[in-house]
Write a protein that binds this DNA or RNA. Structure first.
Length: 524
RNA sequence: GGGCCGCUAGCUCAAUUGGCAGAGCAGGGGCCUUUUAAGCCCUUGGUUACAGGUUCGAUUCCUGUGCGGCUCACCA
């Protein structure tokens, strides 16, 4: 029934899109396409040809000019393909800009070279946003602009809807954008239009790809094995977050979309793989914010015979490497701060950091009640239902986090909010866990992994018992315990939000700017 | 989920105390053989997000809905 309704709704939506009224501009462009067909010109031909990308053509021109070719007629032939981004008609002469993935080139169409009729057709039937193929000779105009003087121009794909009009100009060497397509909702909903007109958006996703590539290179070179583990899981775990639930029809089984990779990756260490990593999507059924999207890209790695101190070293090396690969430097600017990723990073115990920031020594308050009292005494509002670890976390988030601009490892976390981390020897309240902060933002979370099956079982039971109702308790995972019983080598584990790292390296404040299709409410 | 703010032409934005809904760009028709936010003349384009209410009259004031932005909560 529900599925039937859903299909009906989809069908209506699709129909609505197809029958959507075209506005005047769109009708006009459809008429242009019809006119082209009528004279035997294909508005959507199956094939294109190109001899150079724009960037390659520029190189070819430079070489010819260095070899002494005339500037305004290099003699270098080229056929280029791309999208029309501007047009200036001057009677018997038309200038246009065409853009491909590699750059932008000016087209020059002269009546005496393409023919008066063809120039007329170009002026009337070609629009901004159309994909075209232009053949001619490379040159520079008398103002020095890189130009293709065309002998022929062919439509490759007629654009019906006008792209959001933005004009770009150079002023004093700076790029100035007029009437930019800037409405965030429109940009995210129609990312295709956003990418088509906002070149800096395309650049963000090139950087993002480079970030992921650099992470892979770093880990591959150190002998880590890249693996893939289930997205659909019968029991979710490895983090404290609410999951998305889905259903397998034939098996009559509810399944969860994973909230982390942790428990599966550690099963692989039981299996002897020693050093593994996975880059993939996590799904958390929680609020969205500047730093949270319901699905996000996570990197997790696990390294046998390492502890959390070793993982700190790998972390700072890895991020310095990525920044060097992607930005060409280990220093970067973010929100007005100069940030230096060069190892070694500052290391500070959570206890010390909190004490320095707000004067409360968490070790002096070993129970939730005592700590809550101390926090109240210092004027902080406190939720009485919070366990001690949560209270400490709130101190961290409120007082410490905003201060951590330069890369900092905050280490030694409360045990009661870290059910998968190994206890600190001699300290019943603390585990060997750290988080790394940069620019006031939590970037990663790591620990010495708990590998004692008895203690792990006990921790799971504690989570079930001690968690307040409504809070997300870490579920009991019998199979994971069975795996630990076979023996897991001591190891360090690590998780990092790749989206957040990309934010840092691209200077973006909003996680949606680094996700191609961020989650938005559907519009009825 | 709470609070605050927003939604006007394809895009970016105006609209005085509540008084004919406008501009630039894009589009259409002209002129123009080195332009580059090209320029000049003419011109089309609006359910002011949606549904109600108050009013002689609502883009403007009120209520509700939808969507978005910021923020708080939540999300180690």
């Amino acid at each position: 029934m529900a599925a039937g309704l859903f299909r009906l709704k989809c069908w209506l939506c699709a129909l609505g899109a197809i029958l959507r009224d075209l506005n005047e501009i769109e009708k006009n462009r459809v008429a242009k396409a019809d006119r082209m067909r009528a004279r035997g010109e294909q508005p959507y031909p199956a094939r294109a040809q190109r001899t150079h990308t724009v960037a390659d053509a520029l190189l070819a021109l430079e070489q010819a000019l260095q070899a002494g070719a005339p500037v305004q007629d290099s003699g270098v032939p080229a056929t280029l393909c791309g999208r029309l981004r501007s047009m200036r008609t001057m009677g018997k002469l038309t200038f246009a800009h065409m853009e491909d993935v590699s750059g932008r080139v000016q087209l020059l169409l002269r009546s005496d070279e393409v023919g008066a009729d063809r120039l007329r057709q170009f002026d009337t039937d070609f629009d901004l946003g159309d994909f075209v193929q232009a053949t001619g000779v490379l040159m520079r105009t008398k103002t020095g602009e890189f130009t293709l003087r065309c002998s022929a121009v062919v439509m490759l794909a007629k654009s019906v809807s006008p792209l959001p009009a933005a004009k770009e100009a150079e002023e004093d060497g700076h790029k100035v954008v007029y009437s930019a397509f800037a409405n965030p909702e429109a940009r995210y909903r129609e990312r295709y239009a956003d990418l088509a007109v906002n070149t800096e958006v395309r650049e963000i996703f090139r950087v993002r790809a480079a970030v992921v590539r650099a992470l892979r290179n770093f880990l591959d070179e150190r002998g880590f094995l890249e693996v893939e583990t289930p997205v659909l899981q019968p029991i979710y775990g490895g983090a404290a977050a609410r999951p998305f639930v889905t259903h397998h029809n034939q098996l009559h089984q509810d399944l969860f979309l994973r909230i982390s990779f942790e428990l599966y990756l550690k099963r692989l260490l039981v299996g002897g793989l020693e050093s593994v990593y996975e880059i993939g999507r996590d799904f958390r059924n929680e609020g969205v914010s500047l730093k949270h999207n319901p699905e996000f890209t996570q990197l997790e790695f696990y390294c046998a015979y390492a502890d959390y101190a070793k993982v700190m070293e790998i972390t700072e090396e890895m991020l310095a490497f990525v920044a060097q690969q992607v930005c060409g430097s280990t220093t970067l600017e973010y929100e007005g701060h100069k940030i230096n990723l060069q190892p070694p990073w500052r290391r500070v115990a959570l206890r010390t950091a909190v004490a320095e920031a707000c004067g409360i020594d968490i070790a002096a308050h070993p129970t939730a009640a005592a700590l809550a009292e101390a926090m109240r005494a210092s004027g902080q509002a406190v939720d009485p239902a919070m366990p001690r670890g949560k209270l400490i976390e709130s101190l961290l988030a409120l007082h410490v986090e905003p201060l951590l601009i330069q890369p900092t490892f905050v280490h030694d976390f409360p045990r009661d909010i870290s059910p998968l981390a190994k206890a600190t020897p001699g300290d019943p309240h603390t585990v060997e866990r750290f988080e790394a902060y940069i620019a006031g933002m939590e970037l990663c979370n790591a620990f010495s992994e708990l590998n004692d099956p008895q203690e792990q079982a006990q921790r799971f039971e504690e989570m079930q018992r001690d968690h307040p109702k409504g809070e997300e308790a870490h579920p009991m995972d019998e199979d994971y315990l069975r795996a630990l019983q076979y023996g897991m080598p001591p190891c360090g584990g690590f998780g990092m939000g790749v989206d957040r790292l990309t934010m840092l390296l691209t200077g973006q404040r909003n996680i949606r700017e680094v996700i191609l299709f961020p989650h938005l409410r559907t519009r009825e």
